[in-house]
Amino acid sequence: MPKYLLLKHYRGGPKAHKPYPPMDQWAPEDVEAHMAFLRNVRHTLLESGEYVDGQALTPERTWVRWGGPDAAPVTTDGPHPETSDLVAGWYMVDVDSRERALEIAAYVSSEPGPGGEPLYEWIDVREVMTDVKTD
């Protein structure tokens, strides 16, 4: 069965279908509903036997490259354009088909936002390459 990575982004990607404020500015009950929905996503995927992994990333990012022989690694944490991609986290799912992966991603995207309205968040779906030898 193919594995897919469903990436959520802090920023980047296609133009938002519907802009919304940061979550700390939502009504408390909307925050609760959103978090309950995400708990349920994980629960549902575990139940269906499709859940592999789910992780969240902090928004802090450091770019690093080799500095050359006898030199310290070179790092930079900015400036990044406000439109640059910044991954917030992922689900990895093990599913029957690409269609199923897209279906799950669309469901995640329906997560409730302010006023209980769906967020229509863009989810970045990527297939994981296998390392199993084929005959």
């Binding site: 700390d24 500015q25 408390p28 925050v31």
Partner: peptide, 10 residues
């Protein structure tokens, strides 16, 4: 912390 922020704001 997000809950605390939302609660304090409203």
């Amino acid at each position: 912390l997000i809950r605390q922020a939302a609660r304090a704001r409203t």
